[in-house]
Simulated assay, not measured.
Amino acid sequence: MAGNDQAACADGPDFGPLAIEARGLVKRFDGVTAVDGVDLTVPRGAVYGILGPNGAGKTTTLRMLLGIIDPDRGYRRILGADRPHDVAHAIGYLPEERGLYPAMKAVDAIAFVGALRGLPLKEGRRRGRELLEQHGLGYAADRQIRQLSKGMAQQVQILGTLVHKPRLVIFDEPFSGLDALNQGKLERMMHGLAQDGTTVIFSTHVIAHAERLCDEVAIIAGGKVPFAGPVDVARDRIPAQVRLETRAQDGPWRAALPADARHEGSFWFFSLPDTGIEPLLRALIEGEAGILSLSIERAGLHDAFVAIAGEAAARALEQEKPEELRR
């Protein structure tokens, strides 16, 4: 869904290498701690995911970053500003609760959302028509929102989030309610925005989206962030797994296998040794194990999430996953 209309970012001074920096964010509601000491550092131009089950504190964290609510403790700096409202014109925000006026035409809805960020209505309508054409919805420009399907209305709201050419875009559960085709379009749009220098932050409870899209993730559970950083670093929390098939069933080569090696059928399974695979390969060859196959599989983000956030948080994610992704 990326287009040339988003290539230029909103005017403003350079804000350095970080789009967002937050330290020790705490928020309580009626005595209940929803967010408990969250730290986030989001590089400029990154696609950054906030991953966790519903109720983990994702939406509250995003709202504090945006200045919709203030933290009880901690601070946040967004696009170089200590007060989020000072840079609101340079931010696009898609809330989890979707909402457009049903009687508005699609093009007017896009222009209206842009006007909330300081874009003149006339320019918003012009850009809105261009965006709708670019994304195959030109025929719907003058239709009322109530005449559109749920998925089409959500696409209109996404385009409204981008019409003022923001430097930072924050999506709260953006894939909810989209079919597979439009989810793919949204993923491509996010990549396109990042390539153009726009920082993209999105919350999700679907690990597959975070693993495909993100440069970095913050894993959040119970209002805390036990991990924030590159996806690869999260996956490296779990050693890569080796699957080995040998012709010989026994021999001196077996002494070279790691202590966690287990034998299932004709295969051996074990963690990749810290020394790498080469010393083990030499021992297997010299010991005449007769290697039939050997593969190394790196841990996925799901396994990393379980290791970092715990089984209960992982089960909660699985229960919230769309049915088509559970199959």
Results as ranks from 00 to 15, higher is better:
residue 71 P to V: 02
residue 307 A to K: 11
residue 217 V to Y: 05
residue 316 A to P: 03
residue 39 D to M: 10
residue 193 L to T: 07
residue 16 G to A: 05
residue 279 P to W: 01
residue 85 H to F: 13
residue 196 D to V: 12
residue 232 D to E: 14
residue 281 L to N: 12
residue 80 G to D: 14
residue 289 A to S: 04
residue 170 I to T: 11
residue 176 S to C: 06
residue 245 E to M: 11
residue 13 P to M: 02
residue 80 G to Y: 14
residue 141 A to R: 07
residue 214 C to Q: 11
residue 83 R to H: 00
residue 305 F to C: 03
residue 62 L to N: 05
residue 168 L to S: 01
residue 300 G to Y: 05
residue 92 G to W: 06
residue 156 V to M: 12
residue 91 I to V: 08
residue 75 Y to D: 15
residue 104 M to C: 10
residue 124 G to M: 09
residue 212 R to A: 00
residue 101 Y to P: 06
residue 250 D to F: 10
residue 250 D to M: 08
residue 233 V to E: 15
residue 155 Q to M: 11
residue 203 S to N: 09
residue 46 A to K: 09
residue 315 R to Y: 09
residue 7 A to L: 15
residue 182 N to R: 15
residue 317 L to A: 05
residue 22 A to N: 03
residue 245 E to L: 08
residue 184 G to P: 10
residue 149 S to L: 08
residue 37 G to T: 08
residue 66 L to D: 00
residue 322 P to W: 01
residue 295 S to Q: 13
residue 257 L to C: 01
residue 151 G to R: 10
residue 69 I to G: 04
residue 66 L to E: 08
residue 138 G to I: 06
residue 187 E to D: 11
residue 107 V to F: 05
residue 320 E to H: 09
residue 279 P to T: 14
residue 306 V to Y: 02
residue 186 L to E: 04
residue 238 I to S: 13
residue 164 H to Q: 04
residue 82 D to L: 15
residue 308 I to M: 04
residue 278 E to P: 13
residue 278 E to A: 15
residue 19 A to Q: 04
residue 165 K to D: 12
residue 15 F to A: 06
residue 272 L to F: 07
residue 167 R to Q: 08
residue 312 A to W: 11
residue 51 L to K: 06
residue 254 R to W: 07
residue 116 L to W: 09
residue 123 E to W: 04
residue 157 Q to H: 11
residue 313 A to S: 01
residue 124 G to S: 04
residue 142 D to L: 05
residue 122 K to A: 12
residue 324 E to Y: 15
residue 273 P to F: 01
residue 72 D to E: 09
residue 176 S to Q: 06
residue 61 T to I: 02
residue 12 G to P: 02
residue 176 S to Y: 00
residue 316 A to C: 10
residue 198 T to L: 11
residue 11 D to L: 09
residue 87 V to I: 00
